[in-house]
Each structure stands twice: as structure tokens, then as C-alpha cells.
Amino acid sequence: MVDNLQGTVALITGASSGIGQASARRLAAAGASVAIVARRTERLEELADELRASGSTVLTVSADLTDADAATDAVERTVSKLGRLDTVVNAAGLMLNGPTAELTLDDWDRMIDINLRGLLHVSKVALPHLLAAAQQEPRKVADLVNISSVAGRFAAPGTAGYNATKFGVTAVSEALRQEYAKEHLRVSVVEPGRVDTELFDHREGSAEDFEAMFGKIEPLRASDIAEAVATIVTSPRRSAINEIVIRPTEQF
């Protein structure tokens, strides 16, 4: 695998499972030092042991990113311990879909807190560090990659709260892209369809609701999304991949 992220540092949220975990593996394999962030400390340590055994430099940060102070600490610890910050992958997410009458306001609030507010907390405090890295060797470009969803492009019954958060992720990504493009901070959004992760375990019946809508299809793997993230981050400085929509082949 090409080691073209040597000398750079990546912070990945939601790294205890799914897309975040796969992205940490992929960016570490490309040569980046990685700060892996999530709430589940034991899982972070297991991933850290795995990556260190392969020769990667890893910092674990146990944090609830819905807390602005915790998000600030995660970013500042990364810069303090690893020396810089070139890449942020916001992969932490929560999906609580189902009939709107059965969902609670707390369900919606939790999705807003994790999917949108946590992403904003991390992005805001990371911006000055990313902008600084974009002016430095070895790459003279920095990346903020936000994991949204096809639910951030297309609304559907039973997904109103999730749609609201993921439309928000897609919108803030595009606004930041326009704001910082001239400073070589690339802001990208990845919008997956059905992926085989724990996301569908967050609310009982979510997988069945998806199958009722789309039928039984072969889902994407988290590693497929991580490969899309790596494509964005390892692109040459002159090339900005603004948006990737990636679905299972059978998903319409």
C-alpha cells in the first residue's frame, strides 16, 4: 500500500467501530499517525494495539464529542501529543429510524447531538490546526472529511430526524468547502448507502425497515467507505474530491 501520508496526523471520530474504525486502519496503513476517538475505551485500546503491532503511531482519546469541552480536549491532545493535525474524519454517528409517532424527541435530540453537534464541535476547534497544516510540508494541503449518508441527499418516510441531521452534515460540509478552498483546506462529504455496521443496531427494527424499503441486498462493508476516505485524503494537492455517494450495487 502506498505510504503517501507519512509525516501527517489524522484524527478519526467514531473509531471504536464501523466506518471510523475502518478509516483509522486505512489511513494508518497509508502512513499517517492516528488519533482514534470514541466513547468506548476498551475498543479503542484493542484497535490501538492492532495498529501499533503494524508499526503505526496511535493516540487513543476516550471522549463524548457532544460535550464541546471534550471535543476541544480531543483535538488539543492530538496536536500536543502527535505534533500537528492534517486530517479529520468525522465518522461518529447514530441512526434511530422508524415510524415518527413511535420515536421520541429524545431520539431526535440524540441524533442531533451526535451526528451534527459533535461534528461541529470537532470541526470548529480543528480548523486552525488544519489551516496551519495546509501551509506546511509534507503535503501543503489538509482534509476535513465528514461522513454523511444518502439520507443527507434524499428524504424518506420514517427517517425525518436522521434526514435532518445528515442534510445538515452535507450542507455544513459544502459551506466550509467554499469558505476554505483557497487556503488548501479540502472539505469533503461521503454519503454511503447501506453499510454493514452497528448503525442498524442502534434501534430495534432498523434493519427490517431498510429491507422493507429496498429488499435484501448485499450491503457495503465499512472498508469500502474507508477506501473512499483514503481516495479523498491521498489525492494530489491540486485535486479536491468534494463529494462521494457510494451505494451497494443493488441499492436503487
Score class of each variant (00 low, 15 high):
Gly152His: 02
Arg52Ala: 08
Val79Ser: 00
Ala68Phe: 10
Thr41Ile: 13
Val145Lys: 01
Val79Gln: 00
Met111Glu: 08
Leu130Trp: 05
Glu45Asn: 11
Leu82Tyr: 03
Thr60Ser: 11
Ala48Lys: 15
Asp113Arg: 12
Ser54Met: 14
Ile114Gln: 03
Tyr162Met: 03
Arg84Phe: 09
Leu47His: 02
Asp109Ala: 14
Leu116Glu: 00
Val141Gln: 06
Ala91Cys: 14
Leu131Thr: 01
Leu116Val: 05
Ala156Met: 09
Glu45Leu: 13
Val88Leu: 10
Leu82Asn: 03
Asp109Trp: 15
Met95Glu: 09
Gly118Tyr: 02
Asp67Ile: 05
Gln136Met: 10
Tyr162Asn: 01
Leu105Lys: 13
Leu120Lys: 03
Gly83Pro: 01
Glu102Val: 09
Glu42Trp: 06
Val125Arg: 04
Asp73Asn: 12
Val125Ile: 12
Pro157Thr: 05
Asp109Cys: 12
Leu127Lys: 01
Val141His: 02
Ala156Cys: 07
Ser62Cys: 14
Ile112Lys: 03
Thr100Ser: 14
Leu116Thr: 03
Arg139Pro: 00
Asn90Glu: 11
Arg43Val: 04
Asn115Gly: 07
Asp106Val: 15
Val125Met: 01
Ser123Leu: 07
Ala151Gly: 07
Leu94Asn: 03
Ser149Gln: 04
Met111Cys: 09
Pro99Ala: 12
Thr159Ser: 04
Val141Glu: 05
Met111Gln: 13
Ala101Arg: 13
Asp106Lys: 15
Ala132Val: 08
Arg43Glu: 09
Ala126Glu: 03
Phe154Tyr: 07
Thr72Ile: 06
Thr41Tyr: 09
Gly152Lys: 00
Val141Lys: 06
Thr60Asp: 01
Asp86Ile: 02
Arg84Asp: 12
Arg153Tyr: 08
Asn97Met: 15
Glu45Trp: 07
Thr104Tyr: 11
Pro128Phe: 00
Thr100His: 14
Asp113Glu: 14
Pro157Ser: 01
Glu76His: 09
Leu120Pro: 00
Gly98Val: 08
Leu103Val: 06
Leu65Asp: 03
Asp143Ile: 00
Val150Ile: 14
Thr87Ser: 06
Ala71Arg: 05
Leu119Asp: 00
His121Glu: 05
Glu42Asn: 12
Lys140Leu: 07
Thr72Ser: 13
Ile114Met: 10
Gly118Val: 03
Asp109Glu: 15
Met111Phe: 08
Val150Ala: 04
Leu105Gly: 14
Gly161Phe: 00
Asn90Gln: 12
Leu105Ile: 12
Ile147Trp: 01
Ala142Gln: 03
Ser149Tyr: 02
Leu65Asn: 02
Asn90Asp: 13
Asn90Lys: 10
Ala126Leu: 07
Leu65Met: 11
Ala91His: 09
Val150Gln: 09
Glu50Met: 08
Arg84Glu: 10
Arg139Ser: 07
Met111Tyr: 08
Ile114Arg: 06
Thr87Glu: 04
Ile147Lys: 00
